[in-house]
């Protein structure tokens, strides 16, 4: 289980996170919603070790991972599906999956997982040898998800997986997120599509300019009037 406590992250003089605490219990889907610039991505990047926090702590299974390099954080079983997908455009689809398993040595297990991911995303198998840069946005998002799964994560963090995708594809992606979770992987999901995110989430946090504004179960927040108005685009009665 992931425990973030009083995390402060600053870029130059500007604090992007002003002391936030988040819990992600094993086996759950936890979502963070909030507007642009609320600090959602910063939180994920800090957990991943790409940004060093000014203060606070990040604990994963009782170990402080705040000062570890990304490489060591990956080896603890955490991975990130980055915002904007960021597949390697100059690598083939297959190579993108293989690099997801970079730290693994079990060739057999890797081959098995590639097969499993191709079953999950048949479109990717058809494009096995294509450069990832030639894929459509939705296919790239599937590849980014598949690539992350290749490390056999215990905790998968996703940054705006629905961004820029067609509604039908978004539905697919959320179905897959649910399936990933049902197979035992913990999910920390950052989304602007609050409606979809709250529907799949066990627990949700609302971020506003670097602070946690409110939290609750997905259903609670879906019915919260203030949230409805601010994030779900529904008027108060």
């Amino acid at each position: 289980m992931l425990k973030v406590r009083d995390l402060v992250v600053a870029y130059g003089g500007i604090e992007a996170l002003k002391g936030i605490s988040v819990d992600v219990p094993d086996g759950q889907i936890v979502t963070l919603i909030g507007a642009n610039g609320a600090g959602k991505s910063t939180l994920l990047r800090t957990i991943m070790g790409l940004v060093k926090p000014r203060s606070g702590s990040v604990e994963y299974n009782e170990e402080n991972i705040k000062d570890l390099n990304s490489q060591h954080i990956v080896s603890r079983g955490i991975t990130l599906v980055p915002e904007g997908r960021r597949v390697f455009p100059n690598l083939t689809v297959l190579e993108n999956l293989r690099i997801g398993a970079y730290l693994r040595k079990d060739e057999e297990g890797i081959a098995k997982d590639i097969k499993r991911i191709y079953e999950l995303f048949p479109r990717l198998e058809e494009r096995n040898w294509q450069m990832a840069g030639t894929l459509s946005g939705g296919e790239q998002q599937m590849l980014a998800l598949g690539r992350a799964l290749m490390s056999r994560p215990k905790l998968i963090m996703m940054d705006e997986p629905s961004l820029g995708l067609a509604p039908l594809v978004i539905k697919d992606i959320f179905n897959i997120i649910r399936r990933i979770n049902e197979s035992g992987t913990t999910v920390l999901l950052v989304e602007q599509n609050a409606n979809m995110a709250l529907k799949v989430a066990h627990h949700a946090y609302v971020l506003e300019t670097g602070r946690i504004k409110t939290e609750g179960s997905g259903r609670e927040l879906l019915e919260n009037e203030e949230i409805k108005e601010a994030y779900l685009g529904k008027k108060k009665k």
């Binding site: 390697f88 100059n90 997801g100 970079y102 490390s151």
Partner: peptide
């Protein structure tokens, strides 16, 4: 594998890091 990592680093070293590439 090393060559693959080289190509990955040349395009996006941050994400290469997230994949566990040193």
């Amino acid at each position: 594998k090393t060559g693959m990592a080289m190509r990955a680093v040349s395009k996006d070293y941050e994400i290469a890091r997230v994949m566990g590439v040193n």
